[in-house]
């Protein structure tokens, strides 16, 4: 099942999807600047989400039915995969609720934030997903060294995103007068980025665990934990695909 593609074609597919996502993000940014059309931005976000879900998170694996015995590793992994996706479904209701909260309170206004920084952290998270995909592909083909290298890059980028939001963006926002207690703009901004950052943090912890055990060679044969960490990491990226336009691009700056 995991060896359906050979390694290099899986890698090149990862590159292709990354290029699509990067181009779409750039287009989204220019749509925001030039047209400010919510419909087009929503469409782009949905396409990006679809790409991530299909090519990075491999949602189609839910449908494979080639397991044998009930106690076999592939059967158990199939069950775990269903459990993980249901957890993500559940979790997405939290983020959905946050988006409802944001649009109810702020409407078509947005906080006054640094556009360059926003684009930068978005790019960092997107690139980290690319390396996560490479790490997963490596371990599935038994390449432990490639796995370790790629997951360390993912971790660095993930921590970079986290610091970019919490250690750079937050203090800057506070300098701009956007504080948690000032008004609903600040409340929505800190709640949404905070909840997302919390998920990135848990993802980083998840990746550290997977890195430690993977480096010891525990996943050479049975690599489901890496897949689970990857799917979770991509999910966090997926959430940001919607949060980024919702916080940085849509509407006009709140006065």
């Amino acid at each position: 099942m995991t060896h359906k593609h050979d390694k290099s074609s899986a890698f090149s597919q990862g590159v292709l999807i990354f290029v699509y996502l990067a181009v779409l993000t750039a287009v989204e940014f220019f749509v925001a600047v030039k047209l400010n059309s919510i419909q087009i931005m929503l469409l782009i976000a949905l396409v990006k989400a679809g790409l991530v879900m299909y090519y990075y998170m491999h949602i189609y694996k839910l449908n494979t039915s080639d397991e044998g015995d009930e106690h076999s590793y592939s059967f158990k992994s199939g069950t775990n995969r269903i459990g993980l996706w249901m957890f993500l479904l559940s979790d997405s209701f939290v983020f959905g609720g946050l988006l409802v909260m944001r649009f109810n309170l702020l409407g078509l206004t947005r906080p006054h934030l640094d556009q360059n920084l926003g684009l930068l952290v978005t790019a960092v998270l997107l690139i980290s997903s690319f390396f996560m995909n490479r790490a997963e592909t490596s371990i599935e083909h038994g390449d432990r060294k490639g796995f370790v290298t790629n997951i360390i890059i993912t971790l660095i980028l993930g921590i970079g995103f986290l610091l970019g939001v919490v250690a750079v963006e937050w203090p800057r926002a506070i300098e701009e007068g956007i504080t948690a207690s000032s008004n609903t703009v600040g409340a929505a901004f800190f709640m949404m980025t905070g909840m997302h950052a919390f998920h990135v943090l848990t993802g980083v912890i998840f990746l550290l665990i997977v890195l430690r055990n993977g480096a010891k060679g525990l996943y050479d044969k049975h690599s489901y934990p890496v897949e689970a960490a990857a799917v979770y990491w991509h999910f966090v990226d997926l959430v940001w695909i919607f949060f980024y336009p919702a916080l940085y691009l849509i509407g006009v700056v709140a006065g």
């Binding site: 309170l105 948690a180 207690s181 609903t184």
Partner: peptide, 13 residues
Amino acid sequence: FGMGFFDPAKGGN
């Protein structure tokens, strides 16, 4: 934290 989600005085609903 005084976040005004539901506080009309801070624009909440």
